[in-house]
Simulated scan of single mutants.
Amino acid sequence: MTRVPIPDRDDAPPESQEMLNAVARQLRFVPALFRAASISPEALTGLTQLSGAMSRAFDARTLARIALAVSQVNECKYCLSLHTYLGMNFGKLSPYEMLRNRWGDSTDAKSTALVMFVRKLVETRGKVVDSELQMIRDAGFDDAQIIEIVAASAFFIFMNLINNVFDTKVDFPEVDIDSKAA
């Protein structure tokens, strides 16, 4: 059970309504995460604006990979379930690939570097060592893209924190937080 009553879409504060409608247009429904954030129109504004910026910076596949790596480190069951759903339906990633991404691995070298870097970034709270920064550069990411990776990671940490604090009920097919790729 959630730790705070999460409003239905129609019961959210009036200032949050248009943002929730935009989420519904994009996803065809309003996930509990956005309804929880709608309790504070300012927080929902930040969440939706950062979501839009990150969607312009990265394609759905890359965003799903980053989200899964961040959410695994932060043990956010809601976000692991949400981003597995989004990764399959919008990013066209296989379940096996997404499971690997959660643990810092991939079937291709550039994506492996990405998810390894993201995990280190979150685990060390940004205090990555020079060799980790060089590894992501060697994989083909420039400094602007590295800043965008940091921003996307912070965005997903924000989502993880909301869901972990409120123990948001998963409204997607639920994934096992402890699953590992074979």
Rank of each mutant, 00 (worst) to 15 (best):
L27V: 12
V30K: 09
V30D: 03
P31T: 04
A32N: 08
A32V: 04
F34M: 14
A36I: 04
A36H: 02
A36E: 02
A37P: 08
S38Q: 08
S40W: 00
P41C: 10
P41S: 12
E42M: 14
E42G: 15
A43D: 05
A43N: 09
T45F: 11
G46Q: 12
G46N: 14
G46D: 08
T48I: 12
T48N: 10
T48H: 04
G52A: 15
G52I: 03
G52R: 13
G52Q: 13
A53D: 06
A53K: 05
R56F: 00
A57I: 02
F58K: 05
D59K: 08
D59R: 09
A60E: 12
R61Q: 14
T62P: 06
A64E: 03
I66G: 08
A67G: 15
A69Y: 00
A69V: 07
V70R: 02
Q72F: 03
V73A: 11
E75M: 07
K77S: 11
Y78H: 05
C79Y: 00
C79L: 02
C79N: 04
L80H: 10
L80E: 10
S81K: 04
T84R: 07
L86I: 14
G87V: 10
N89K: 11
N89L: 06
F90N: 09
K92A: 14
L93G: 06
L93Q: 02
S94W: 00
P95T: 14
E97C: 12
E97T: 12
E97R: 09
N101L: 10
W103Y: 02
D105V: 06
D105L: 12
D105N: 13
S106I: 07
D108N: 14
A109V: 15
A109T: 15
K110D: 04
K110C: 07
K110H: 02
S111I: 04
T112E: 09
A113H: 06
L114F: 10
V115W: 00
V118F: 01
R119S: 03
R119A: 08
L121S: 09
R125W: 00
G126P: 01
G126K: 03
G126T: 04
V128T: 12
V128R: 05
V129R: 15
L133V: 07
Q134Y: 00
M135G: 06
R137P: 03
R137E: 05
D138M: 14
D138N: 15
A139E: 01
A144M: 14
A144L: 15
A144T: 15
A144V: 15
I146N: 05
I146G: 10
I147M: 15
I149N: 11
V150Y: 03
A151R: 09
S153Y: 00
F155S: 10
F156P: 01
F156W: 01
F156V: 10
I157R: 13
I157Y: 02
F158R: 08
M159H: 15
N160W: 00
N160C: 15
N160D: 14
N160E: 07
I162C: 07
N163R: 03
N164E: 09
F166C: 09
T168W: 02
K169W: 00
D171G: 13
F172I: 03
P173C: 11
